[in-house]
């Protein structure tokens, strides 16, 4: 970020800590440029919002995994990630690309940005399918994922421990099949 006020260290640590004040600052500093670019290149406000938020989530994941390499300001980095994501989205929608108004310095960000974007899309899809499961399935799976002891799960659900495990397996299989049959998922592969 072309820091007018705060250090890059502060901003990065703030993103990592999901600090509202930091995110508001990042929004204020970096979003207008991204919005202007996307709206000048076949996009609208909603596209700009989706792409910008995705760039922050990607940055967060890279920070968390200790593999963010910054060779420029964070503002330029975010803009470059947004540009790459938007160009790929236009390409996927088979819209012609006659890029205008880049307006800011951009750099090549690693291909892993797209890998993280793809993973985020899959995860959103998985969560949407989870939401469609029967309530008891969601409850059983949630309890297993929260590492609640099997005995407690069985008690809460009114199952035997053996049946609780079996039910968890059945629910997971329902979820896997539902995702595998989804056309969006097939397109993602």
């Amino acid at each position: 970020m072309e820091l007018k006020k705060y250090t890059e260290q502060e901003v990065l640590a703030g993103i990592l800590g999901n600090s509202s004040k930091t995110l508001q600052y990042v929004y204020k500093e970096a979003f207008p440029g991204v919005r202007k670019y996307i709206m000048s290149n076949s996009g609208n406000d909603e596209d700009a919002k989706d792409i910008f938020q995705e760039s922050i989530i990607i940055t967060y994941k890279k920070l968390k995994n200790n593999n963010l390499v910054l060779t420029c300001s964070l503002k330029v980095y975010l803009f470059s990630v947004c540009r790459l994501l938007w160009l790929k989205q236009l390409e996927n929608q088979r819209k012609g690309i006659q890029e205008v108004n880049v307006g800011e310095f951009v750099l090549n960000v690693g291909e892993d940005v797209l890998d993280i974007r793809d993973q985020n899309e899959r995860y959103e899809l998985y969560r949407a399918h989870f939401d469609l499961l029967k309530e008891d399935c969601k409850k059983v799976l949630r309890m297993f994922l929260d590492k609640i002891p099997l005995k407690e799960i069985a008690k809460q659900m009114g199952f035997t421990e053996q049946y609780a495990k079996k039910r968890k397996f059945q629910c997971k299989e329902t979820l896997v099949k539902s995702i595998q049959n989804d056309n969006d998922y097939k397109e993602m592969l």
Binding site: I57, Q119, R122, Y123, Y126, R127, F130, R142, L145
Partner: peptide, 16 residues
């Protein structure tokens, strides 16, 4: 199967 579990437990990203 592994990704489903990761997706449902990444509460930090959901909060963000």
């Amino acid at each position: 199967r592994k990704e489903i579990e990761d997706a449902l437990t990444e509460t930090d990203v959901i909060d963000l």
